[in-house]
């Protein structure tokens, strides 16, 4: 199988890999580059556990071909904490007890981050809409919704 080169920045660091044509971004990140924070919950775009941010857009990495991401700026949950310090969004998930098994958490955080980047003061409906592509089987969602709303408040207080 022919290999194609892909080159992008991942959480600010340059990465280059040769992948088989048709390789998903999820596979490239996890198995080639070693960032296992995106999770493969369905590999068919229905669970959201693999969510990453590509050039500011929320993307399902299991449905994104790695070869379409050349020169892209890719962000994952593994790169969120700066200097080992948790971001308010991560802090809020801890404080709200919004993680149980944790498998959906990185994808939830990515979805929430894109929301808060665009809508710093979201309504509950905004949060629900933003998380609607992410499946959680443990929490019943309410603690996650609360965590995102709390993070939004923390962000706006920091900005003020």
């Amino acid at each position: 199988m022919a290999k194609v080169p892909v080159q992008f920045t991942l959480n600010g660091s340059e990465k280059a890999e040769f992948v088989e044509s048709g390789t998903t971004l999820l596979h490239a990140l996890r198995d080639k580059i070693g960032d296992t924070s995106p999770k493969g919950g369905c590999h068919q775009g229905t669970c959201g556990a693999c969510s990453v941010i590509v050039d500011g857009e929320l993307r399902l990495s299991c449905l994104t071909l790695a070869e379409t991401c050349s020169d892209a700026d890719i962000r994952t949950t593994a790169g969120l904490a700066e200097g080992g310090v948790l971001q308010p969004l991560q802090r809020a998930f801890l404080d709200a007890f919004a993680t149980q098994c944790g498998f959906c958490t990185p994808g939830m955080i990515m979805a929430a981050k894109v929301l808060l980047d665009r809508t710093p003061n979201p309504s509950r409906e905004d949060v629900v809409e933003a998380l609607s592509g992410n499946i959680c089987r443990c929490t019943g969602y309410e603690p996650i919704i609360q965590a995102v709303l709390t993070a939004a408040r923390a962000n706006s207080q920091n900005a003020a």
Binding site: T46, V127, V128, S132, I135, G140, Y141
Partner: peptide, 17 residues
């Protein structure tokens, strides 16, 4: 066979608990 067909309440379908 997936989360589109196997139904569960999403974050917009929650009962006041």
């Amino acid at each position: 066979t997936d989360f589109n067909q196997y139904l569960m309440p999403g974050p917009g379908d929650l009962a006041k608990t």
